[in-house]
Amino acid sequence: MCLAIPAQVREILPDGMARVGLDGVVKEISTALVGDLAVGDYVIVHVGFALSKIDAVEAERTLALLAEAAGAPAEAMA
């Protein structure tokens, strides 16, 4: 697999670097692969690089779909 985990941008550093945080753990990563970022954005981090930005709207949508998937059998039975 490619071990990667979402972390939040805390500080933009020079030279395409940034400090990101994950529940109190802070790490310096390269943002060269994702372009413009703002403090507060979430990025997926893999081997010290940000791979992609997390789309907050789509994340909400996924959670709604998950809730729906969890609720479906009740509807089916009703």
């Binding site: 985990i5 972390a7 994950l22 529940d23 109190g24 753990v25 790490k27 981090v45």
Partner: peptide, 9 residues
């Protein structure tokens, strides 16, 4: 929580 996070990383 921080231990979990560090382990994830």
């Amino acid at each position: 929580a921080q231990v979990v996070a560090a382990c994830e990383l």
